[in-house]
């Protein structure tokens, strides 16, 4: 029996599951654009909390799923924030030898943390609440050739398999012990090997999948039959419209108040 795959689509009776897939994709892009415009951690933090609330409330995603799926990315975001504490110019607020933390670094670090975490979290919301097939259908309806739409989103189909593979490799490596060197060097070696093993097996799988798609008539014609259809409702627009309003509000607040408050 295998462990649960946390980063995968599940049928849920949630508002986000019922939202038109292409609209959710647009929403992810809107969130990403907003996060790249934001210049203060206040707007980034508010947006992160809003996306998290949306995932838990309107998406009915459990906190465990959010945590298990996001831990690596949030960790990377945290490291990115620490990195920015030290590398940015500004007034030195703390120093130890050649390491200095600046006031600008303290402000800009969290901006990068929230940028990475919020964009990834919104992408996860899309994955958790959207059947790849429906997303593809909605993209084709929006005018994209189905070969391209399918190729892009076939990657999502493989996320759970990659997750399984990572777990299997981690388990196998953990019983091999540590040969030599520091704990950091050992961890680095393991990471190298995870990437190598997963890349090799990923390439093998990709080759088989590409062949299998050919054998199953993929690209037989410009057109395609769709057994399951997706239907757009006007109410689906609520998500992007409210998001645009919130983003606009946050950008306005940044420009008129928060930037000055943080001395930017």
């Amino acid at each position: 029996m295998s462990q649960s795959n946390f980063l995968s689509f599940k049928e849920r009776n949630s508002t986000l599951n019922g939202t038109y897939p292409f609209i959710k994709l647009i929403w992810v892009f809107l969130v990403a654009i907003g996060l790249f415009i934001f210049q203060t951690p206040i707007s980034g933090g508010i947006m992160f909390l809003l996306v998290l609330t949306l995932a838990l409330g309107a998406g009915k995603i459990s906190p465990v799923e959010v945590f298990r799926s996001g831990i690596i990315v949030f960790g990377l975001g945290f490291l990115l924030m620490l990195f920015h504490f030290f590398i940015n110019p500004g007034e030195v607020v703390w120093s130890l030898g050649f390491l200095t933390i600046t006031d600008y670094g303290l402000v800009i670090g969290p901006v990068f943390f929230f940028r990475l975490s919020t964009i990834v979290l919104s992408s996860f919301v899309l994955i958790w609440t959207t059947d790849t097939r429906d997303l593809m259908t909605s993209m084709v309806k929006a005018g994209m050739p189905y070969r391209y739409a399918y190729t892009i989103f076939l990657a999502l189909r493989f996320l759970p398999l990659i997750q399984k593979e990572v777990e299997a490799v981690q388990s196998a490596h953990s019983i091999r012990g540590r040969a030599a060197g520091s704990s950091f060097a050992h961890r680095f070696k393991l990471w190298q090997r995870y990437v190598f093993t997963i890349l090799i097996n990923g390439l093998r799988k990709a080759e088989v999948t590409a062949d299998a798609l050919e054998c199953r008539g993929f690209g037989y014609s410009e057109k395609r039959t769709y057994v399951k259809d997706v239907h757009f409702k006007t109410a689906d627009l609520i998500l992007p419209v409210i998001t645009v309003l919130i983003l606009a509000g946050l950008i306005y607040m940044e420009q008129t108040s928060w930037k000055a408050l943080l001395g930017l």
């Binding site: 059947d131 790849t132 189909r157 999948t209 299998a212 008539g217 037989y220 057994v227």
Partner: peptide, 19 residues
């Protein structure tokens, strides 16, 4: 070789391609 998420979608995938 599976290209979709659910069992019934997978069975339909080939014939959908073949129109």
């Amino acid at each position: 070789m599976f290209a979709t998420l659910s069992v019934e979608d997978e069975i339909a995938f080939g014939p959908e391609n073949l129109l």
